[in-house]
């Protein structure tokens, strides 16, 4: 077992990146990392050694992240997230036909995954999601929580949550298309 100081050096960056991706705020992310280490220290005797130390710390961090989401969303209204304003509505005509037709993504999408530039574009597009949409979407897609669980954590109805997921997917899809898939084909760099 490492000493606490060595812990921070060994796992600090990893835990920080994990948290930052999900809460998108450096101060909050490092606070969560601190709480995680402290909780880890307190419960060290429960650490069975069956999982790796890192996996164990990540499990603690996940709880801290969910608690954080729960806290910041307590009592907030979902109205701002589902106002009928934006690109999703304008993607369709009044009769519900596609107005902006999704383009054929003619590159083998798997090839995009191998390119560093693709991930920069992905990062850019993800950063464009409004905070609550991003919260909801990462609880669903990264933590793999069910709709019911996300509803409870964020305090939104299932109907509103479905709209939020839809918005997030529409926005990401169209952003990736604009900034990557609709660009000229590029070679593997």
């Amino acid at each position: 077992m490492l000493s606490p100081e060595a812990w921070v050096d060994q796992y600090g960056d990893y835990l920080f990146r994990y948290a930052l991706l999900r809460v998108r705020n450096s101060t909050i992310a490092s606070d969560l990392v601190q709480e995680t280490f402290l909780a880890g220290l307190r419960s060290m005797k429960d650490f069975s050694g069956r999982s790796s130390e890192r996996t164990w710390l990540i499990a603690i961090l996940k709880h801290k992240i969910v608690d954080h989401y729960r806290e910041i969303n307590r009592g907030r209204s979902a109205r701002e997230d589902i106002s009928p304003n934006d690109s999703c509505e304008s993607a369709f005509t009044e009769t519900g036909e596609w107005k902006v037709i999704p383009a054929e993504w003619d590159l083998d999408p798997a090839k995009a995954f191998e390119q560093k530039e693709f991930w920069e574009v992905f990062h850019h597009c993800l950063s464009g999601l409004p905070g609550r949409l991003a919260d909801a979407f990462s609880l669903r897609e990264l933590e793999g929580l069910s709709t019911d669980e996300v509803c409870r954590i964020l305090g939104v109805t299932a109907t509103n949550l479905a709209v939020m997921f839809y918005r997030a997917r529409m926005k990401l899809r169209s952003c990736l298309e604009t900034h990557w898939f609709a660009q000229k084909p590029r070679g593997n760099s």
Partner: peptide, 16 residues
């Protein structure tokens, strides 16, 4: 990103 140095120090102090 990496854990900012000041946060790293603070966390170590808190753990100690």
């Amino acid at each position: 990103a990496a854990l900012p140095p000041d946060a790293r120090d603070r966390i170590k102090r808190a753990l100690n």
